[in-house]
């Protein structure tokens, strides 16, 4: 697969360079919301959704900035635009699909200024992806985040019954598991050529 192909960009963000386990983006929700599989799923869906919205926004805003030679304002614009776009979509969803809002709603404000979201926007700009490549990238990154979160939640649900030493605090234990997961995901390196 060529590195520019959509399939490779998707796979790369999904498994090989997983946002959470290889690039350490979005660790706060990863450690915070991975207690239950059900919650993890909903959170994952919300992240995919926000990622696509912000990827499209960042693509548009970057075009504008490049045209007017204002690249140094990129960071400020990205944050402001992503935050307001998510807010707007949130209001829209609340109005038209209350059921969907109940599933995703509580997570949306949590993830708007998450490093995974901003990281996605910055990486797609640095790598100069075109519009469809951006979509593949954001979809892959979101799916990868969801996969990591759900795996982690599954492990932690099992772990609640396990007998661990006293000194092992909650956070340290989660980090240890994350490290093992990350080790496993390194096995995907080289996938797709």
């Amino acid at each position: 697969m060529s590195p520019d192909s959509h399939a490779f960009i998707f796979l790369n963000a999904f498994l090989i360079n997983n946002f959470v386990l290889a690039m350490f983006l979005g660790l706060c929700p990863f450690l915070g919301v991975s207690g239950k599989v059900k919650t993890a799923w909903n959170m994952g869906l919300a992240v995919i959704f926000v990622m696509i919205v912000s990827s499209v926004c960042a693509f548009g805003i970057n075009h504008l900035l490049v045209r007017y030679n204002l690249e140094f304002l990129r960071l400020i614009c990205y944050i402001a635009v992503i935050a307001s776009a998510v807010q707007l979509v949130e209001m829209f969803v609340k109005k038209f699909s209350p059921a969907l809002f109940r599933t995703l709603g509580i997570f949306l404000p949590l993830i708007t200024t998450n490093c995974a979201i901003l990281g996605l926007a910055l990486f797609q700009t640095n790598r100069e992806y075109d519009f469809t490549q951006c979509l593949a990238f954001s979809l892959g990154a979101g799916a990868g985040f969801t996969l990591a979160l759900v795996l982690m939640a599954g492990l932690r649900e099992k772990l609640e019954l396990a007998d661990v030493p006293d000194t092992v605090t909650q956070a340290a234990l989660s980090l240890m598991i994350a490290g093992l997961l990350s080790l496993t995901f390194m096995g995907f390196a080289g996938l797709g050529g």
Binding site: L175, M176, G179
Partner: peptide, 12 residues
């Protein structure tokens, strides 16, 4: 990457 997780877990 996994080393980052392990090192922080170790310090904790």
């Amino acid at each position: 990457p996994p080393g980052g997780f392990f090192a922080l877990a170790g310090w904790l």
